[in-house]
Design a protein around this nucleic acid. Sequence first.
DNA 1: TTGTACGCGTTATCAA
DNA 2: TTGATAACGCGTACAA
Lengths: 339, 339
Amino acid sequence: MFKPPTIEDVAKSAGVSKSTVSRVLNSSAKISEQTIKRVLEAVQELNYEPNNIARSLSKKKTHTIGVVVEDILNTFFTEVVGGIETTLKKAGYSMFLTNTAYDYEDEIKLTRMLMRNKVDGVLITPVKSDSEALSLLKERKVPFFVINCRCDHQDIDWIVSDNIQGGYIATKYLIELGHRKLMHLRGVNIQSTNDRLEGFRKAVLESGLKLSDMQVIGNAKFIQDGYDVMKKYIKKQSAGSFPTAIFAVNDVVAIGAIAALNEHGIGVPEDVSIIGYDDISIASLVRVPLTTVLQTKFKMGEIAAAQLIDKIERKEKRITRQFLIRPELVIRKSCKRLS
Amino acid sequence: MFKPPTIEDVAKSAGVSKSTVSRVLNSSAKISEQTIKRVLEAVQELNYEPNNIARSLSKKKTHTIGVVVEDILNTFFTEVVGGIETTLKKAGYSMFLTNTAYDYEDEIKLTRMLMRNKVDGVLITPVKSDSEALSLLKERKVPFFVINCRCDHQDIDWIVSDNIQGGYIATKYLIELGHRKLMHLRGVNIQSTNDRLEGFRKAVLESGLKLSDMQVIGNAKFIQDGYDVMKKYIKKQSAGSFPTAIFAVNDVVAIGAIAALNEHGIGVPEDVSIIGYDDISIASLVRVPLTTVLQTKFKMGEIAAAQLIDKIERKEKRITRQFLIRPELVIRKSCKRLS
DNA sequence: TTGTACGCGTTATCAA
DNA sequence: TTGATAACGCGTACAA
């Protein structure tokens, strides 16, 4: 059975004590040139790699960050994770990546697992804003940072894309193009999509328009939902009440809606303008390049990771850090100015 | 300063020795109902969580798998990682996810880091098929499994999508549709894309056609490359030699090529058929729903992870495991039968 | 059935 | 500048 060399083996080979080897490797004290050389030679020869597990146990620090994500396959989270990974690597941390698949029980189990693994900190996209996972972390004094969820508690750090602002700028853009009869294809009932609706309302009211003139329909999430909702709407409505512009809760819903519209001979943007949300990678490639609202996901991950590390290493007094990232309008071809 | 309770604390609180606590928690031996109850109560009360670091050090097993991926943002790898994560979770393992960004130096550094962290095994998509990372792992007897790369060495386990077969079925399909003047938009010079070209050639020859009649152009990777290569080709060529069908090295290159074709009034599939590779999520959403070749990425991840775990836990003699996953044809609308 | 004592591979403390 | 030796928190052989 193969056993990797330990610090003890190096010590013997170099003819010194293991404390000396440790000192050389961590350059923590003054050591004679001679012994340094001898130790490094022994390290080379044995091809010694320190055992981080033992080191972690001794130092009570693992240089490891746990990441709990809702959907590891969703490009939104993927890009956030990309930002996290980049930042952690730079700072010398490794990443335990876990996936809840929106399962609350799993979220708690995974958080527990991470705590048992003594991660130095946790980045989490919680299913619920009052998730017990957060209480667990707080109780055990594990530094953590919440991503993509505004938590009520004042002392919880988080970063979210400002969905109210995003809904606002999307709607405002449509209004500026001269549209007055708007529709919102709303999403499922969660914080982020509710915020987008709120932004929609805010823009409408602020522009002196009436909410009662606007239509808010659907409960859409995937491309098929966008298609179905639109299809159903078209069949029911008389042409008179048809909106001139639509704000869809996300890009795939927008794409589905466009397909339904086209099937009925309604052109985008000739007959109706449509704006999405997310700027998914294909937004520029679909039949009509999609005007949309961009969330800087990679950056969100970077900021969250950087903040967490700062919290861990600086150990400064509790400053609550809450970040609202401004989304950006990406103008392509799916909206036209109303003459 | 807060200190989480240790097994010792639980032992004291329950009035037993720590070995007893350990036994209860690992149910490794027979213990009286009484003490079991007392211990569990103490665990509850103190909200005790075992320290996996200490446990790992003692048991020489971390229940952790290192994953080294070339591009954490690429949906190909993302889906593979999805399959890995699912499988590992089921088996009770955690995942250290790292990203090389195609940097060979990084690949080695990260592999070293994983070994220092004493992962029980490694899943890796190496940049080179003879990467030193693999030798390191072999030397240190760390079980590993290679994803998406056929390695020369007979004793290395790997799983790849069969790109030769993929190129073959794509080309064969075009030929079966009656096409005789084919073109291949080739990719950059790496194993997988070279294999696709090889499959292309194989299908051509096998059908009794001449390779000299076929055109192989480009060095394309991204959407822009597909556009540029096609654009350039159109400008140079006389209509006579134009192919009736094109096999593009991947979907985005195909999409770029279609854009270039359309700009010149060449319709797909009316004037020229085109088939892609990958079945990226948007393949069905672009102007012309794309016929393509599908790689079962999630499944690749699942298989790789399952095989690795099997290797770790069964400790059976060396059976080399090499998997060639068959790609599948996904027929949509971008190819037409030649009359 | 339970407890004692040692080992896992480091770092940290205290002498020398 | 170095070397013993004690933590770190847990599993486990051995003894009781």
